[in-house]
Nucleic acid binder design. Structure first.
Lengths: 204, 204
DNA sequence: CTTGGACTTGTACGGTCGTACTACTTTCGG
DNA sequence: CCGAAAGTAGTACGACCGTACAAGTCCAAG
């Protein structure tokens, strides 16, 4: 269903333009943060006129919500493809911890990145959703999917794979990452150490 | 040292006004979020003219940094006073988990609040610090103090009280709180359950 | 070919923003 | 008591913002 009562952008070209705007918005969210995204910024990034942003989307809120949905979907896609590449049995706490990070952190190009600014967007979604109720369902659905994947990782590691444990893992990753990002430390090693500790506790 | 080379607000009245502005800014950060705070909003809240905000502070960034410092200090004060009221021995995993939350979460009026919007500011500091390097030291120092208090709580609970364990606890609280806030769930019970699980793992 | 609706886009409106500036008042050492 | 410095505050400037709108183009149905 379209964003307004009036049909907008139903043609092939229209859908292309919508998509271009959403991707531009997603990039800006990652680079500059949620609150720094504007109609004009999106239009410039997508190389489209300003008015295109108001033609295809009812409001900036609407655009941002759909952009977040787009982001979450691509994050999930990546996490799923990473999970698919993992072996059926994860031996060793270190290997298990690495697998947890692979599905819990959706960095753009794998773990080679230092995730300087990019990681922030991953967590800004929490804040933004807390403030804007209509984003909550998006985040809740995303987190639920991550829970499921983490349970699968736990299962492959021979650990208890109930929901509580999965949530424990995700919260640990989020908390450790966020702290490292805030303190200007490389977040991935910090999160890896934290998750390794937690995995060690779980396998006692 | 003053915020600029020129001495500003050294008089008694000047210091009062500075403080009023900082407190107004802190309240606005908590209520509306970091990015929604403006010179005009602060001035209105403090019942001072707009120009007072630019007279006492070199820039909005400067004002926000000092406001965050003010907030962190008051959070630490509260956490310290709560820690002081705790018994010397914390018996039981539930009691220990509650103690962890008491020092790790600086809600304004204790745990009676549902921490609807207020909790967000606690975590928005992470995001803002990640984006603005000069805020990192503030957050890092705050977190370090919380680490120390959590180690004391662990000690009173008869659990290993090294830094790693304290960081594990804080990350768990932060991750669980943030998720609950984002999903619109009452965050304190969620965090309590998560910390209880972690404490159970630690005391095995 | 015509015509009506979808699509496109330059432009403009009203608003808020950070900050600078200019007068005015208060304070206080000499 | 006075003059300089500090403090105070009203106002203005340029920039950016979300959004509305009118005038244009395009295209398929009649």
């Amino acid at each position: 269903m379209p964003t307004t009562g009036v049909p907008r952008g139903t043609s092939a070209r229209g859908q292309q333009r919508r998509q271009a705007l959403l991707e531009a918005a997603a990039e800006l969210i990652i680079e500059d943060g949620f609150s720094a995204v504007s109609h004009r910024g999106i239009a410039q990034r997508a190389e489209l006129p300003l008015a295109a942003t108001t033609y295809y989307f009812a409001s900036l809120d609407d655009l941002l919500e759909q952009a977040l949905r787009h982001l979450a979907a691509s994050w999930l896609d990546q996490a799923r493809s990473r999970l698919a590449q993992l072996p059926a049995h994860l031996n060793g706490q270190r290997r298990l911890a690495e697998a947890v990070l692979l599905v819990a952190i959706a960095t753009p190009d794998g773990d080679e990145r230092d995730a300087g600014q990019d990681g922030l967007a991953l967590y800004e979604r929490y804040l933004e959703a807390g403030r804007r109720p209509h984003l909550r369902t998006v985040v809740a659905a995303y987190n639920h999917e991550v829970d499921l994947m983490l349970r699968e990782v736990l299962r492959r590691g021979g650990l208890p794979h109930d929901v509580r444990t999965a949530r424990l893992l995700l919260a640990q990753v989020d908390g450790a990452m966020l702290r490292a990002l805030a303190e200007g430390v490389d977040p991935v090693p910090v999160a890896l150490a934290a998750v390794t500790d937690l995995v060690r506790l779980l396998s006692r």
